[in-house]
Write a protein that binds this DNA or RNA. Structure first.
Length: 488
RNA sequence: GGCCUCAUCGUCUAACGGUUAGGACAGCAGGUUCUCAUCCUGUAAAUCGGGGUUCGAUUCCCCGUGGGGUCACCA
């Protein structure tokens, strides 16, 4: 049997962090067993329809590397599908759901309900007042067939409800074990709405079966509706898949992760300069741990070590400070080309750096970045030197004359150096350090004023790096300006 | 409130029923470095409570307590 997992988002226009983890775990599980990762669009709520949401969803999944094996794909920006079980968008499968809903009607496993929303709301509020469980009272189940026929002839709108039998329902969750619930606790779930669209419950069961899904891995918020689904599988005579419900990702106050308390959209984090790799790594470890004392894992390693039985049962707080740390790790260690691809959009366009300059700036500044967004603020120094007081040029253990002396000498060294010198950061360091060594100077006496002359800042990248990025003429120009500052 | 469910440092987590309860992030204190960022060292910090079972419970069972989820013609 081929393992098939699925990720069925409702297209709301953004990808929730929790959904990212759900998608990732589905992906990891499928890949680990050589299975199929399926993407399905669950858009049966037309009131929440968002134009272009599917496209942006697929793009986001693409950016974080969660490419589905089956389902909707974007080819040159145009939506199409791959796989033999389509369509993979539920709004294109209405006939299928209706067919099964009517089959259940004929079987006597479901019934029509003509109750208005108003009546249902009243019923619910009365039940709440009386502190009773809120359940449909099955008024329409008691309608005789001539009455039903009469209402149908009158074109009265109706929904189709699942008739929950007596007894209890037990199912196995791969993470939590056996769970049993009394059927009397379950409402006669609406399967087909008045508009002919299915509810989640019907659509998910029908689709998962028809599409050959073997493992359902999703958030814990679904656990209470599993019994309905199990009952549906039973009356539809479908074999049961495996269920695994993931613990929730939490706000710092331990409630379910929500807007209000920070960003929840993957797109927001990408926009802020968090790397896809970091996001994936971070989210993977929210609720799962391969074994022990490691934090950084490649996707390949995650696939190898993924194990549903090692997924935690309790919720995990989304801790941005740890994400920041991890993002920093990835920025510092990512392959330069990949990093540049990700970082380029974050350079301030007004600064107008050449690609080569960007490469050097990134090589230098990546040591100091928490997110790529920091790039826009931290790089202006390479474009123009900020204003600064001449006192800043003086090393704490020296004086103006000392600074002047060294700046002049280094200016001369740079003047005499050829272009090759400025191409090689290590060579720059070697030559300037030699100047310090042979004259028995202290590092600070030379490097502090040089660094300030080049950056205009008390805190910046090192002087060798600055010379390398700024190049010959700009470096010399800045040193000359500093010299003037002291003299005048 | 009913039902379901969960429970190790502030946070993410590790620990065949036997460990001085480990690691990471954040914190604090030092150190390296021209500054920043790194890096290094050290430090503080947890098994929710009560009963069992056992020679021995973080680990198994029960009861509390606390948290969370869910109770729509939303997914």
């Amino acid at each position: 049997m081929i393992i098939k997992t699925r990720f069925p988002p409702s297209p709301t226009g953004y990808l929730h962090i929790g959904s990212l983890r759900t998608a990732l775990y589905n992906y990891l599980f499928a890949k680990k067993y050589g299975g199929i990762f399926l993407l399905r669009i669950e858009d049966t709520d037309r009131e929440r329809y968002v134009e272009g949401a599917v496209e942006s969803l697929i793009q986001t999944l693409d950016r974080v590397g969660l490419i589905c094996d089956e389902g909707p794909v974007l080819v040159n920006g145009v939506l199409s599908e791959k796989g033999d079980y389509g369509p993979y968008t539920q709004s294109n499968r209405l006939d299928t759901y209706q067919k099964y809903a009517h089959q259940l009607l004929e079987q006597g496993s479901a019934y029509r309900c003509f109750c208005s929303k108003e009546r249902l709301e009243k019923l619910r509020s009365d039940q709440q007042l009386a502190k009773l469980p809120t359940k449909y009272d099955r008024a329409c189940l008691r309608l005789d067939s001539t009455e039903v026929q009469h209402r149908l002839n009158n074109n009265e709108p109706f929904v189709i409800r699942l008739l929950i039998p007596e007894g209890e329902t037990t199912f196995k969750d791969e993470i939590r074990g056996m769970i049993t619930i009394q059927n009397s606790e379950i409402d006669d779930q609406i399967l087909l709405k008045t508009d002919g669209f299915p509810t989640y419950h019907l659509a998910v069961v029908v689709d998962d079966h028809l599409m050959g899904v073997t493992h359902i891995i999703r958030g814990e918020e679904w656990i209470s509706s599993v019994p309905k689904h199990v009952l549906l599988y039973h009356v539809l005579n479908f074999p049961l898949p495996s269920f695994a419900h993931l613990p929730l990702i939490l706000n710092p106050d331990k409630s379910k992760l929500s807007k209000r308390q920070g960003d929840v959209a993957v797109e927001d984090y990408l926009k802020k300069g968090y790397l896809p790799e970091a996001l994936i790594n971070f989210v993977a470890l929210l609720g799962f741990n391969p074994s022990g004392d490691r934090e950084i894992y490649t996707v390949k390693e995650l696939i190898e070590s993924f194990d549903l039985t090692r997924v935690n049962k309790s919720g995990a707080v989304f801790d941005i400070t740890k994400l920041n740390w991890m993002n920093k790790q990835y920025i510092r260690s990512l392959e330069p080309k990949r990093l540049m691809d990700l970082a380029e959009p974050f350079f301030n366009e007004e600064l107008d750096f050449s690609f080569e300059q960007k490469e050097r700036i990134l090589a230098v500044e990546k040591e100091r970045l928490t997110t790529l967004q920091d790039l826009s603020q931290q790089t202006s120094v390479y474009s123009a030197i900020p204003l600064f007081e001449k006192n800043l040029l003086v090393w704490k253990k020296a004086d103006e004359q000392d600074a002047l002396h060294h700046l002049k000498n280094i200016e001369q060294i740079l003047q005499d150096a050829d272009e090759k010198f400025f191409m090689d950061q290590l060579l720059i360091e070697e030559i300037l350090k030699k100047y310090i060594e042979i004259n028995h100077y202290q590092n600070g006496n030379v490097l502090w004023p040089l660094r300030v002359a080049l950056s205009g800042q008390a805190q910046s990248a090192g002087p060798f790096e600055l010379v390398w990025v700024l190049g010959k003429s700009e470096s010399i120009k800045r040193i000359q300006q500093a010299i003037q500052k002291i003299i005048s």
